[in-house]
């Protein structure tokens, strides 16, 4: 069986890298003594994976971890044991159980939804956002991972249909969904860059993740 959980990456650990976040989960599973399967081979590792990598500095209430179990365990007990062993900043929100032969969660993710809090000139932002929403093509030079000097041109509109912009007192709140395709997706920072926004002081949160057709990632939504 496989146990899948929706977990968080809270604000206090937002600057933990994706790899370090994975390692923290691995060590938590070991502390919790959950019966997760080991890979075979010279360097056995626990069989678990995350649905989608999150950039450093981004908060999330929608991380999805999938664990392959060596033996059956009650999902509520698994949740309880693991929660006790997790570091502060990672909370379990929901969980479900599926058969081992189910396709991995990673293959199912269709959209990530983000919320961004910013400070700045509201009028300037809403103009940029309007312009973005009314265009059919927004070309952006995306940096190729691990190649600092290499860029690839993408049309942001293939990934993000609309950006919602709300201007509150001295604060701008952006909402958008980024589509996840088999061959990749975009980072929320790419979207902000294409809008001409300096992301260094933007407070970005991944608030949800859906399957294609906006179906929930897990089967049992409590």
């Amino acid at each position: 069986m496989k146990i899948r959980m929706q977990i968080t990456k809270d604000a206090d650990i937002r600057f933990v890298s994706h790899l370090d976040y994975l390692r923290a989960i691995e060590r938590s599973i070991r502390r919790a003594e959950l019966p997760v399967e080991y890979s075979s081979g010279f360097n056995p590792h626990l069989k678990f994976s995350l649905a989608s990598a999150l950039g450093v500095g981004i908060v999330s209430s929608a991380e999805f971890v999938e664990m392959e179990m060596a033996k059956d365990i009650e999902v509520n007990i698994a949740m309880e044991c693991l929660q006790k062993a997790l570091p502060n900043g990672i909370r379990i929100i929901d969980a479900d159980v599926v058969a081992s032969n189910e396709p991995p969660l990673m293959a199912k993710a269709g959209f990530s939804k983000y919320k961004v809090h910013l400070c700045g000139d509201g009028d300037k932002f809403s103009a940029a956002v309007n312009n973005f929403n009314n265009s059919t093509k927004v070309i952006y030079r995306k940096q190729v991972p691990k190649h600092k000097e290499k860029f690839k041109e993408v049309n942001i509109k293939d990934f993000v249909n609309e950006v919602k912009c709300e201007i509150r007192k001295g604060e701008i709140v952006l909402d958008f969904e980024i589509q996840i395709f088999q061959d990749g997706s975009l980072k929320p920072r790419d979207v902000l860059n294409s809008l001409g926004i300096d992301y260094t002081d933007a407070d970005i949160e991944r608030v949800a993740m859906y399957r294609v057709g906006h179906l929930p990632m897990l089967n049992s939504k409590k």
Partner: peptide, 20 residues
């Protein structure tokens, strides 16, 4: 430390604490 500071430096998790 504020978000913009931590966004600009290498290995920001060196400075945040909160470990298990």
């Amino acid at each position: 430390l504020s978000i913009d500071v931590l966004n600009k430096i290498e290995h920001p998790s060196r400075y945040i604490g909160g470990e298990f």
